[in-house]
Design a binder for these strands. Structure first.
Lengths: 164, 164
DNA sequence: TCTTGTCACTATGATTATCATAGTTACTAT
DNA sequence: ATAGTAACTATGATAATCATAGTGACAAGA
């Protein structure tokens, strides 16, 4: 492609978000980070993206202050990637994407019983379904409050990806 | 690029959404549709995207049943694009993107007073701020319930785009 | 009738992002 | 000394995107 048109100076807020989020690799990496995966190799593995892409996007995310690069050991030098507050603020976006897909992106019966990934409120143990406010305790849901429980079919897929 | 890896058969719901939404052009076109813009030329103008891209993405969105193509006159043949229910379901995603950007994507004072686009609940006239439940009447907010009021600075930008 | 204008696109060629694959760096462990 | 691991970088082929120009089907005015 030619240099893509830069709309980062657009005044429209959706346009600004789109500049960052309108990229498959960014979205997949953010998914990994929200699931608590912080290592380069793990993210590359789970997303199926090549290492140059993962590298380039993490660099971008660090630049945008959505992600922070932290050394977790000195020798050999090893790094992890953590969401900043700005990054954690994207929880609602990813959660809305998840809810939309659970509702619209699966063929009937494709997920077996219930959703592809069941979300459990850590604080009270309730299955939150697709709510933004916990049906068990009434708390508002945000970053780190939920634990994902993949359906048996999704677990099988993850195992298959890890072992090939 | 080579043919990009197809993850549409991924079991993960965020991955499935990312397949469609991880594309700047798709996001911008959806923004136009949510603002009630249904004409090809208007969308191309407002997004700054070339006509082939707009054409290709609208085709994709129609295929995915997110958008419906409707003739609004026979001679000469003219068409408009409308969101389907599946498309309207993306309201929460775009709304979350907007809220995130209003919070994080502007320099202090860049929007003047208040947000770049103020959202008003049509039913009761209240400024909803960034809420998902109307602070004026308590109703849950969804597709078509809100009216956007661009800040003076954003209006100026739109006028500039239309007249060059 | 001839020209101009509008809407919704399609065609062409240059540029560049992405992919698959392989290689590198800096170590630790055996 | 060899193998292994984490986090990358390098290379070449392919394809998506951009800018620009052109097309088809008609309406309206000179």
């Amino acid at each position: 492609m030619p240099k893509r048109a830069d709309l980062s100076d657009t005044f429209c807020p959706v346009g600004r978000s789109a500049e960052l989020l309108g990229d498959r690799a960014v979205l997949l990496i953010l998914r990994e980070l929200f699931f608590g995966r912080r290592r380069f190799e793990v993210m590359a593995q789970n997303t199926g993206l090549g290492p140059q892409l993962v590298s380039a996007r993490l660099k971008l995310l660090v630049e945008e202050e959505v992600v922070e690069r932290r050394a977790y050991q000195e020798r050999p030098p090893r790094h992890e990637y953590w969401l900043t507050d700005k990054g954690k603020g994207l929880f609602e976006v990813l959660y809305a994407m998840r809810n939309w897909a659970e509702r619209w992106a699966y063929a009937p019966g494709e997920t077996g019983e219930g959703p592809a990934i069941r979300y459990i409120h850590r604080a009270c143990g309730a299955d939150v379904g697709m709510a933004t406010i916990c049906p068990g305790c009434g708390a508002e849901l945000g970053y780190g409050d939920l634990k994902g429980e993949p359906s048996p079919m999704l677990q099988a897929e993850q195992v298959a990806r890890a072992t090939n």
